[in-house]
């Protein structure tokens, strides 16, 4: 599997061909549309990350030591960014997610979308993805010890 940071760099490179912002958004809309809708059982308040502007749903499983993310948003551009995050973090070990910095968002000029004041749920989602990784890592370590 491609290196974690290589994927991030690929995303940055992909976006660098767009000169116009609206082209970038068009691409994010495409990505958002292509991301399979979340399993309805996870599109519930329990898995809701409430931004006051848009909603994000997130669920993660650990299968054979790798995280499988299931995510969605009610806003399509946000969902496009969600798709990128899932593309990057899906099927990764908790360690991979926790050891590497997330730089692609900044690299494609979407940093503002992860600011706490934007309240679109994305920043909280990234935190939650890392939390899942931490929780599963802790669980794995526990299992090893016992």
């Amino acid at each position: 599997m491609t290196d974690y940071n290589e994927i991030q760099q690929d995303i940055v490179d992909e976006f660098s061909v767009f000169e116009d912002w609206l082209d970038r958004y068009n691409y994010l809309i495409e990505l958002g549309n292509d991301l399979p809708a979340i399993d309805p059982k996870y599109r519930t308040n329990e898995y809701l990350i409430n931004g006051c502007q848009s909603k994000v749903w997130l669920h993660a499983d650990l299968v054979e030591g790798k995280l499988l993310f299931n995510a969605d948003s009610d806003a399509i551009i946000v969902k496009g960014i969600v798709a990128l995050l899932v593309k990057l973090m899906n099927e990764r070990t908790p360690a991979e997610i926790l050891q590497n910095d997330l730089f692609f968002i900044d690299g494609i000029g979407l940093r503002q979308n992860l600011s706490p004041t934007r309240s679109n749920g994305l920043l909280a989602m990234v935190k939650k993805m890392r939390l899942y990784a931490m929780a599963y890592q802790a669980k794995e370590n526990q299992n090893k010890e016992s």
Partner: peptide, 20 residues
């Protein structure tokens, strides 16, 4: 979604507010 519309309008130089 109003947030999508607001993001796109923003990049056209149009400042509106979205949300509640």
């Amino acid at each position: 979604h109003p947030y999508d519309a607001g993001m796109i309008l923003d990049k056209m130089g149009i400042a509106v507010r979205t949300g509640t």
